[in-house]
Design a protein around this nucleic acid. Structure first.
Lengths: 139, 139
DNA sequence: TTAAGTGCAAATAGTTTGCCAGAGT
DNA sequence: ACTCTGGCAAACTATTTGCACTTAA
């Protein structure tokens, strides 16, 4: 009886804010924090609020247009949603893209019987250690 | 000239608090949050404070006796520090141990030249999706 | 027209920290 | 004794949310 085939997802409106947020995020390879991205977006939209940045990042993440990287203290964002992993420096906490070299094996059925029933959707590997700069500094 | 061969790490004192915290954490396979662990420890040490739980968990983590699992909203802890990965349910946010089946390949030299200089220390894979209970509920 | 989205500010909540008393070695 | 630790409460900070106003469709 309904005219749309979408389950019931509310209509999405195109806004300059979301557009600029995704554009600025896409320019970066640095996996910015929300406040770093906020500063950039503000240069183009001086009246934008941090709340809007958060709301749109969450939306972009839900739609699969952005990755959320949990770093403990905060979240970093990445507009590159292709299959890749990350390296986080334990000293400076910056994040790099990292191609682990063993690819992204798709996990089929888990081997142990007691894992039956789990629906696997995503997987991703986090590497950590020291980046070149910090490894020099720390010896 | 110094009598100890430790670099300068302050003397570690053995305290009941840390002992109980590690004991309770070790009993669990549920990767508790700090507040869940706090509730358990409190049953044995009613006057313990949440700050103490946090301080000791951080200490245990530094010493390699506990894992910190970043779940976005909060941190979960695990006393099993052997090589294993985790599955997090995106609906109920609970965490399970998960043996991915492809082991923990040690990453040798990164293949791309521009990754030279990175010191790799740890790596670990996070799986996510729906647990059996939530997958039933959500269809 | 109308409801999704925004700006703003206040509220949340997990975690950290300063301070002084208490306990391990 | 000498200091690392703990208890307590206040502080911090990343993130979320309520509300009235805008604006895309």
């Amino acid at each position: 009886m309904s005219t749309d085939n979408q389950q019931k997802s509310a209509a999405q409106r195109r806004t300059i804010q979301r557009e600029v947020i995704l554009e600025e995020l896409s320019k970066l390879k640095t996996h910015p924090r929300s406040d770093e991205l906020y500063a950039l977006v503000r240069q183009r939209l001086p009246r934008v609020s941090l709340g809007t940045v958060y709301r749109n990042l969450a939306k972009l993440h839900r739609e699969g247009q952005a990755l959320e990287i949990y770093c403990g203290d905060f979240v970093r964002y990445d507009a590159d949603v292709s299959a890749h992993d990350h390296f986080i420096c334990r000293a400076c906490r910056r994040v790099w893209d990292f191609d682990s070299g063993h690819g992204h094996p798709t996990v089929g059925e888990p081997r142990s019987g007691d894992l039956a029933g789990f629906v696997m959707e995503t997987q991703y590997t986090m590497f950590s250690g020291l980046c070149p700069g910090c490894s020099e500094r720390e010896g």
